[in-house]
């Protein structure tokens, strides 16, 4: 027993790749769940605020998920950067004439898209989780009558509408989620290959499904700021 096997595994090229893949899968799972929750905005104010209130009353669940996500994010970013440094060191002298036969632009710019998405996550947390960018909008409450008594709860719906009412903010979210979709268009199918899941019976499903899911996620997230700007959510 001991931890040497783990250090050896994490230090190896494939171990690092598997870490990026597994942490990426965790983050991808969260993104899917987060999208499903966000899309409640289309069912109206009540549905979104009910969901927000439900989460607010589950601190154990919320903080567990946050802790898992933080670990996954740190592992994903640190291992990806380490791999990238290793990969750059593996070719100290570049080619005078370089060509690309079939590698997609997304696959070649994963570090760039990933770091931009990371910067967006920081902004997004400051905006909607901490409320540091627009405190007044963040503090909005809604009065609801429950069992004959009036209670106050966080008005997430109005916070979203106020936030996305600013054109530059909505534009930033559109661009950031397009980048997320671009990142996932390579990342989702790539993680299956790294984990060795590539049976010919479903390989084309994985490759097409990865791009399809990335497009659905991008379109889903982008639809919210877009609909606020178009006045479809008010």
């Amino acid at each position: 027993m001991g931890t040497r096997w783990l250090a050896n595994f994490l230090g190896s090229s494939i171990g690092s790749k598997v870490t990026v893949a597994v942490s990426g899968l965790v983050l991808f799972g969260f993104v899917l769940g987060h999208l499903a929750g966000n899309l409640l905005v289309f069912r109206g104010k009540g549905a979104l605020n009910d969901y927000a209130e439900f989460l607010a009353h589950q601190p154990g669940l919320v903080w567990t998920v946050r802790a898992v996500l933080l670990v996954a994010l740190l592992a994903h970013v640190s291992m990806a950067i380490r791999l990238q440094l290793r990969n750059r060191a593996a070719r100290p002298q570049p080619y005078a004439r370089n060509a690309t036969v079939q590698a997609s632009l997304a696959s070649r710019q994963m570090l760039l898209s990933g770091l931009l998405v990371l910067a967006y996550i920081v902004y997004h947390l400051l905006h909607f989780t901490v409320g540091a960018t627009d405190h007044a909008a963040f503090e909005q409450v809604e009065q609801v009558v429950r069992n004959g008594a009036t209670v106050q709860r966080h008005d997430v719906y109005r916070m979203v509408v106020t936030g996305f009412g600013h054109v530059p903010v909505a534009a930033a979210y559109v661009v950031a989620n397009a980048l997320l979709a671009w990142h996932l268009s390579h990342g989702v199918s790539s993680l299956f290959q790294t984990l060795g899941i590539d049976d010919p019976r479903y390989l084309s499903w994985i490759r097409r499904g990865g791009i399809g899911l990335a497009a659905v996620i991008g379109a889903g997230f982008i639809s919210i700021p877009l609909c606020v700007q178009l006045g479809l959510i008010a």
Partner: peptide
């Protein structure tokens, strides 16, 4: 050597058409 990022460039140029399934 570097680490694979699943871009499939190797598969495209391999003179013996080895597929990336061997990497998986």
């Amino acid at each position: 050597f570097g680490a694979c990022t699943n871009q499939l460039e190797c598969e495209a140029v391999c003179p013996k058409e080895i597929r990336v399934s061997v990497i998986a």
